[in-house]
């Protein structure tokens, strides 16, 4: 059971890492897989995804800073307001029932899926 757990979690991380390495949202894979397979609760699954993002993002950030690919004039004001949003969002999540949060998350996934399909159509038209 413990080994099985290891393999499933590692594969979930792997799949989500491949997807985010290709520039798509990895959390959209990792969180549902965790919730539907390991079921640690919606809040924990989201916390795993947040922490999971940090080491990879640090490495990517260093590379992007070296390559001067980051637009700081754009990033700084977004970060300042983003921090307020992040606190508000986390507070709302923490005060929400896990079942309800899970349904909201499901709705968010559906919206992202719809956007991805819509965007695909536009790209085909453009290219």
């Amino acid at each position: 059971m413990n080994n099985w757990n290891w393999i499933v979690l590692f594969l979930a991380g792997l799949a989500s890492g491949i997807v985010s390495g290709m520039g798509m949202g990895g959390g959209a894979i990792l969180i549902p897989v965790l919730v539907l397979v390991a079921n640690p609760g919606q809040h924990i699954a989201q916390s795993v995804n947040l922490l999971y993002f940090i080491p990879t993002a640090v490495v990517a950030l260093v590379i992007h800073i070296r390559n001067k690919s980051i637009d700081f004039r754009m990033a700084v004001p977004i970060i300042i307001f983003g921090l307020a949003g992040a606190l508000a969002g986390s507070w709302i999540a923490a005060s929400m029932d896990a079942g309800l949060l899970r349904k909201f998350f499901g709705g968010f996934l559906l919206a992202m899926s719809a956007y991805e399909m819509f965007r695909k159509g536009r790209n085909n038209g453009g290219k």
Binding site: G25, G26, G27, A28, L30, I31, A45, Q46, S47, V48, N49, L50, I78, F81, G82, L83, A84, G85, A86, L87, A88, G89, S90, W91, I92, A93, F104, F105, F108, M112
Partner: peptide, 12 residues
Amino acid sequence: VTGLANGLFGSG
């Protein structure tokens, strides 16, 4: 909006 979604859903 980015911060709100990222905090609320832990992703996105």
